[in-house]
Amino acid sequence: MPQPTTPVPQNFDEYCAQKAAPAGSSAYYALRQAPMARQPYLTALFALRRELEETVKDTSDPTIGRTKLAWWQKETAALAAGQPTHPVSHALAAHCGDIEAEAPMLRTLVAGFEMDLDQARYLDFANLTRYIERVGGAFAGAIARATAREPRHADAWAGALGNGLMLAQFVQDLGNDARYGRIYLPIDELQRYGVTAAEIINRKYGSAFSELMRFQTNRARETLQAAQAGIPATERATQRTLRAQTAMALALLDEIERDNFQVLHQRIALTPIRKLWIAWRAARKR
C-alpha cells in the first residue's frame, strides 16, 4: 500500500513542528509550556494527530481516505514494533522511552479517526462520546503521561480534559466541519432546539441556533472546568501543556459567546498575543 505523499526532511523534529505547531497556533503556545526535554516528543504526538486528522477530513474521496488510513494503521503498528518509516513515526520512536507501551493509544487514536470515514452525523451524545473519547480522551492521556509524575494513573483524569477540548473544538469548527459534510452535534440535540443540518450547512443564523450553541458552549465549558479541577494536586505542575490548552479553549469559548456564536461563516480565534499570555499564565498558575 502506498505511503501518503509527504516531504521527508532530514530533521524529523522540524517536520513535526511544521505539521503540528506552526508559530502563532494554539498548539505552538501550549507545547512551549512543556519541559524543554519533553517538547520534541509532545510535538511529535501532536503531529501524529494532525496527520490522522488530515487523512480523513481533508480527503474528498472516502476510498482514498480509507487507503491512507489503512497505511497509517500499518505504520503505527510498525512504530510500536520499532520499525518506523514516516518522519512523525521516527520522531516518536526517537523521543518516547517506551513506544511499545503506547501501542494501545495508537490503535485507539487511529480507530477514532476511522469513525470519520464511517459516519458524519451522530444520533445522540452517547454515540458522539465514543468518538470523543478515542480522538480526544486517549490523545490527552498520552500527552499527560509524557510529563506526569505517575504516568500509570494519568488516563483516570486526563481523558476528561481531552474530551472537553474536543467539545470546544466542535463549537469553534462547526462551520468549517459542515462545509465538509460533518456535523459533530447530536441529531437529537438539533431536533430539541429546532435547528436542521441544512440550516447549519447553509450558514443560517437565528435565535434557535444561538440557543443550541449556548448549550453546546456551556457543556464544553463545564466539562473543561470540571476536568481541570480534577487534575491531582501532585500533577498540576507537570501538566503545563494540557492546562495551557484548556485555558485557551475556555477563553475562546467566551470569545465565541461574545460574538453571538457566529461560527458558521468564519472561524473565530484568539490573537497570537492573547494565546501567548493565556498559555503562559495558565501553565504557571497554582
Score class of each variant (00 low, 15 high):
Gly24Val: 08
Ser26Val: 06
Ser26Ala: 12
Ser26Lys: 09
Tyr28Gln: 02
Tyr28Glu: 03
Tyr28Asp: 07
Tyr29Ala: 01
Ala30Asn: 04
Arg32Glu: 09
Gln33Thr: 11
Ala34Phe: 14
Pro35His: 02
Pro35Asn: 05
Met36Cys: 11
Met36Trp: 14
Ala37Leu: 08
Ala37Arg: 07
Ala37Thr: 05
Arg38Gln: 12
Gln39Tyr: 02
Gln39His: 07
Gln39Lys: 12
Pro40Ile: 03
Pro40Ser: 15
Tyr41Cys: 06
Thr43Tyr: 13
Ala44Val: 05
Ala44Tyr: 04
Leu45Phe: 04
Leu45Ala: 02
Phe46His: 13
Arg50Leu: 12
Arg50Pro: 10
Leu52Tyr: 10
Leu52Asp: 11
Glu53Thr: 06
Glu53Trp: 08
Glu54Phe: 10
Thr55Met: 05
Thr55His: 08
Val56Leu: 02
Lys57Arg: 14
Asp58Cys: 14
Asp58Val: 15
Asp58Tyr: 13
Thr59Gln: 14
Ser60Ile: 12
Ser60Lys: 14
Pro62Ile: 11
Ile64Gly: 02
Arg66Ala: 15
Arg66Val: 13
Thr67Pro: 13
Thr67His: 10
Lys68Cys: 08
Leu69Pro: 03
Ala70Ser: 15
Trp72Pro: 04
Trp72Arg: 09
Lys74Ile: 13
Glu75Ser: 08
Glu75Phe: 09
Glu75Thr: 10
Thr76Ile: 14
Thr76Gln: 12
Ala78Ser: 08
Ala78Thr: 03
Ala80Gly: 03
Ala81Pro: 02
Gln83His: 15
Gln83Cys: 07
Thr85Pro: 08
Thr85His: 09
Thr85Leu: 11
His86Gln: 06
His86Met: 02
Pro87Tyr: 11
Val88Ile: 11
His90Gln: 10
Ala91Phe: 15
Leu92Trp: 15
Ala93Leu: 07
Ala94Leu: 11
His95Arg: 10
His95Val: 12
Cys96Ile: 05
Gly97Trp: 04
Asp98Trp: 13
Ile99Pro: 11
Glu100Cys: 08
Ala101Pro: 06
Ala101Tyr: 12
Ala101Arg: 06
Ala101Phe: 08
Ala103Trp: 15
Ala103Met: 10
Ala103Tyr: 15
Leu106Gln: 13
Leu106Val: 12
Thr108Leu: 07
Thr108Arg: 06
Val110Gln: 15
Val110Cys: 01
Ala111Arg: 12
Ala111Met: 08
Ala111Pro: 04
Ala111Trp: 14
Gly112Phe: 15
Gly112Asp: 04
Glu114Gln: 05
Met115Trp: 08
Asp116Gln: 00
Leu117Pro: 03
Leu117Glu: 09
Asp118Gln: 08
Asp118Val: 04
Gln119Ala: 05
Arg121Ile: 04
Arg121Met: 04
Arg121Thr: 01
Tyr122Asn: 00
Phe125Gly: 05
Phe125Lys: 01
Phe125Glu: 10
Ala126Gly: 03
Ala126Thr: 00
Leu128Tyr: 00
Leu128Met: 01
Thr129Met: 11
Tyr131Pro: 01
Glu133Met: 02
Arg134Asn: 02
Arg134His: 10
Val135Glu: 00
Gly136Met: 01
Gly136Ser: 09
Gly137Glu: 03
Ala138Phe: 03
Ala138Trp: 03
Ala140Glu: 06
Gly141Thr: 07
Gly141Lys: 07
Ala144Glu: 06
Ala144Cys: 13
Ala144Ser: 08
Ala144Arg: 04
Ala148Gly: 09
Pro151Asp: 06
Pro151Phe: 09
Arg152Leu: 13
His153Ile: 00
Asp155Trp: 05
Asp155Ser: 01
Ala156Met: 05
Trp157Ser: 02
